Amino acid sequence: MTVIDRLGGDEVLARCEELADLLTDTVHNGASIGFLAPLDRAAAVAWWKARADAVHAGGLAVWAAWAGDRVTGTVSLAFADKANGRHRAELVKLMVHPEARGKGLARRLLATAERAAAEAGITLLHLDTETGSPAESLYRSAGWTRVGSIPDFAATPAGVLHPTTIFYKRVAPLSR
């Protein structure tokens, strides 16, 4: 059974090795999530350690999916740091381990982040994803609205430039 938990900054630090394994496996299997292959494991560990500071500061929320003691997925919300943007957050680093794909985990992680955003009073989410990727169809089917695409926005893990598609979703704050 897969469990999804929100991680505090100390938990991100304590689990950075496992989170780094997920990150490197995801990049090495072609996911365009901001890194080039081959992604050095030490660099992946350092990247996750740096995220712990943002979690501690309240600018980032991280959820991890666990199957037994193995991390099988993550999703994060990056909260706006500008006073006029406190109502919005960016959905970032939705990752599912290649062996866990096709089982609805990405959809569960996405729903978890959307629900948490609403609980935090966030009313607008946004994200970017590689145009034509499986993630693009996930967001469409989950009710996200496509804004448009930007050509040559980011490189795939192999270093090839691809367009990115921008999406947003309005989420209603939940009554407290």
Rank of each mutant, 00 (worst) to 15 (best):
S76N: 10
Y168T: 01
V160K: 12
E119V: 05
R86E: 15
H28L: 15
W48K: 01
L125I: 11
L7F: 08
P163W: 12
A142Y: 07
R108N: 12
A172N: 08
T24V: 15
I4Y: 14
F167N: 00
L60I: 03
A118D: 08
G102H: 09
A106N: 06
V160S: 12
E114L: 13
R6Y: 12
E11R: 00
L39A: 05
A155W: 04
E119D: 09
W63E: 07
D152F: 09
T112S: 11
T123M: 15
A118L: 09
V71R: 03
L161G: 01
R107E: 15
P173S: 09
L138Y: 02
H126F: 15
H28C: 13
L36R: 06
T131P: 05
G30K: 05
L36Q: 11
E114C: 09
L94M: 14
N29H: 14
A67W: 08
S175E: 14
T112L: 15
L22F: 12
A135L: 07
S141E: 14
G143D: 14
G104I: 09
G30A: 09
T129R: 00
A118K: 01
R101A: 10
R88E: 14
G102K: 07
S141D: 13
D69R: 04
G159P: 05
L138C: 07
C16M: 06
R108I: 08
E99P: 00
A100S: 09
L7M: 04
I122M: 13
E90W: 01
G34W: 10
A44P: 00
R88C: 14
A154V: 07
V12P: 00
A116L: 11
A100T: 02
L127T: 02
A67Y: 08
R108V: 02
L39D: 09
A89Q: 08
R115F: 13
R41S: 06
V160I: 12
G58Q: 04
A14F: 00
T112C: 15
D152I: 02
R146C: 11
E130G: 01
G132W: 11
A106L: 13
V160L: 14
A37G: 06
I33D: 07
V12Y: 00
M95S: 04
L39E: 08
A67V: 10
A14S: 07
G59P: 04
A14W: 03
A54P: 01
I33P: 02
H56G: 02
L39W: 04
A158K: 03
N84P: 05
E11G: 03
A42T: 03
T72S: 14
I4K: 10
E114W: 11
D69I: 02
L110Q: 05
L127Y: 01
W63L: 13
A155V: 03
A14H: 07
A44S: 04
A100C: 05
V55H: 02
F167W: 12
R108T: 08
L19P: 00
V92E: 15
V27P: 01
D69G: 08
S133K: 02
R6F: 12
A67F: 09
F167M: 11
